[in-house]
C-alpha cells in the first residue's frame, strides 16, 4: 500500500500547473520529488494535503482518497517557512500538535525531546522571532513531525541549513524511517537524493518526466558511467561534436565519450549495449596502467540535466531571491496568485 497520484491536473487560469501527474510512493520509503522551480512540486504537495483540489485526477493513501484521510496522517514542511513570530517555541509546537489531536502534555514532552535532539533545547521558551533562520527551520521541522505522521512531506528541507544541521536532519530522517514513516521531500541538492532516496519522481512544467526506484531510473537512461584513471596520462575530452579525445584507443570503442575530464580521473559515458569491461580490456591491451576503474550508473544530477535541459541548482537561485523579497516569494506557488482558483 502506498501513496498513489493518478492523473492529477490542476489549472490556474490559463496556466496548467499539473498536466496529468501519475506516480506512486511506496509506503515506508524515502522518496525524492524533483523538478525545477515552477515545475509543479508545491502544487502536487498541496493537492496531496488537500490544501488544493485538483481539476481532475485523484490522490490516494492506502486506497483512500487523500481528501478523506485523517489530517494527522500528514506532516508538512512547506517551502515558505513560517512560525508565529511572537509565540514561544514550545507553545507553537504544542499548538501545532494540538491541531492533530496530540494532548498538550504529550506534545510538550515530545517537543522537548526533539529540541534536545536537534541541539536547541534552550530555545523552548524563546520567541520564534529571536531564533536564527536555521534554528527556526528546525522548529518547523519539529512542528511537522511532532504528531508522528505516517507520511512526511517536505519542500526543500535542506535549504538554509549549515552542514552540521544537515547531518542532524539526515539523522532525524533515519529515525523517522525506522519508525515506519514515509518521507517525501523535494530538493535541488542531488547528492541528498543519491544519499537518502530509494525512489524518485522528476516533473517538469507540470508533466512527469520519470519516476521509480533510483536503480531503475538510472538504468532507464540506457547508458552507464565508467570512472577511469590511467597512470601517467590525463584523459581529455573531445569536442562536443565527437572529436578525438587525448587517448586514441578510447575513440576506437563505439559510443563511448568522455563526459567529465579531470586531473585524477575521468568519467566516460558508455551505452547500454557496450560492456563497460571492454574499456578496461582495451586499456590493458594497449599497455595502459589502470589505477582506477569503476562502473557506475549516471548520477541523478546528470539525468536531471539530460531530461530537464538545465541543472537543478537554478532552483537555489530562485529560492534565495525569494527570501529577499518575501511577498514575491510564492515559489512554485506562483500560479496560485490567480484568485479565481482558491485553495481547497
Amino acid at each position: 500500500m502506498s501513496l498513489v497520484l493518478d492523473g492529477l491536473v490542476k489549472r490556474f487560469g490559463a496556466v496548467t500547473a499539473l498536466d496529468g501527474i501519475s506516480f506512486e510512493v511506496p509506503k515506508g520509503e524515502v522518496f525524492g520529488f524533483l523538478g525545477a522551480n515552477g515545475a509543479g512540486k508545491t502544487t502536487t504537495m498541496r493537492i496531496v494535503l488537500d490544501i488544493l483540489r485538483p481539476d481532475s485526477g485523484i490522490a490516494t493513501w492506502e486506497g483512500t482518497p487523500t481528501t478523506h484521510v485523517p489530517r494527522e496522517t500528514w506532516g508538512y514542511l512547506p517551502e515558505e517557512r513560517g512560525l508565529y513570530p511572537r509565540l514561544q517555541v514550545l507553545d507553537q509546537l504544542v499548538f501545532f500538535a494540538s491541531l492533530y489531536g496530540i494532548p498538550r502534555d504529550v506534545a510538550a514532552t515530545r517537543a522537548r525531546e526533539w529540541l534536545a535532539r536537534l541541539r536547541i533545547p534552550d530555545y523552548a521558551t524563546r520567541r520564534a522571532e529571536e531564533l536564527s533562520k536555521g534554528n527556526q527551520q528546525k522548529v518547523q521541522l519539529i512542528a511537522a513531525i511532532l504528531h508522528e505522521p505516517a507520511v512526511l512531506l517536505m519542500d526543500e528541507p535542506f535549504v538554509g541549513l549549515d552542514p552540521v544541521n544537515v547531518a542532524l536532519l539526515k539523522e532525524a530522517f533515519g529515525e523517522m524511517r525506522e519508525r515506519g514513516s514515509t518521507l517525501i521531500f523535494s530538493t535541488h541538492q542531488m547528492e541528498m537524493v543519491e544519499e537518502l532516496c530509494e525512489a524518485v519522481a522528476l516533473i517538469d512544467r507540470g508533466k512527469l518526466v520519470l519516476a521509480g526506484p533510483i536503480r531503475e531510473v538510472k538504468r532507464s537512461t540506457g547508458r552507464r558511467v565508467v570512472r577511469l584513471a590511467l597512470d601517467g596520462k590525463t584523459i581529455e575530452a573531445g569536442t562536443p561534436d565527437g572529436g578525438a579525445t587525448s587517448i586514441p584507443w578510447l575513440d576506437s570503442i563505439p559510443g563511448v565519450r568522455v563526459s567529465r575530464a579531470g586531473q585524477d580521473y575521468a568519467e566516460l559515458e558508455v551505452p547500454r549495449d557496450v560492456d563497460p569491461e571492454l574499456v578496461l580490456r582495451t586499456a590493458l591491451e594497449h599497455g595502459e596502467r589502470v589505477t582506477n576503474f569503476l562502473i557506475a550508473d549516471p548520477s541523478i544530477e546528470e539525468i536531471f540535466i539530460e531530461r530537464v535541459g538545465r541543472p537543478p541548482a537554478s532552483a537555489e537561485e530562485k529560492h534565495l531571491a525569494g527570501s529577499v523579497s518575501a511577498p514575491a516569494a510564492a515559489g512554485s506557488a506562483a500560479p496560485v496568485r490567480a484568485a479565481s482558483e482558491p485553495p481547497r
Partner: peptide, 18 residues
C-alpha cells in the same frame, strides 16, 4: 494578516480548514 505575512498559514492549513 500576521499568520499570512509570517507564512505560518500554510502549516496551519495542512491541519485545519479555513
Amino acid at each position: 494578516a500576521e499568520e499570512k505575512s509570517s507564512r505560518v498559514m500554510e502549516i496551519v492549513l495542512a491541519a485545519a480548514t479555513p
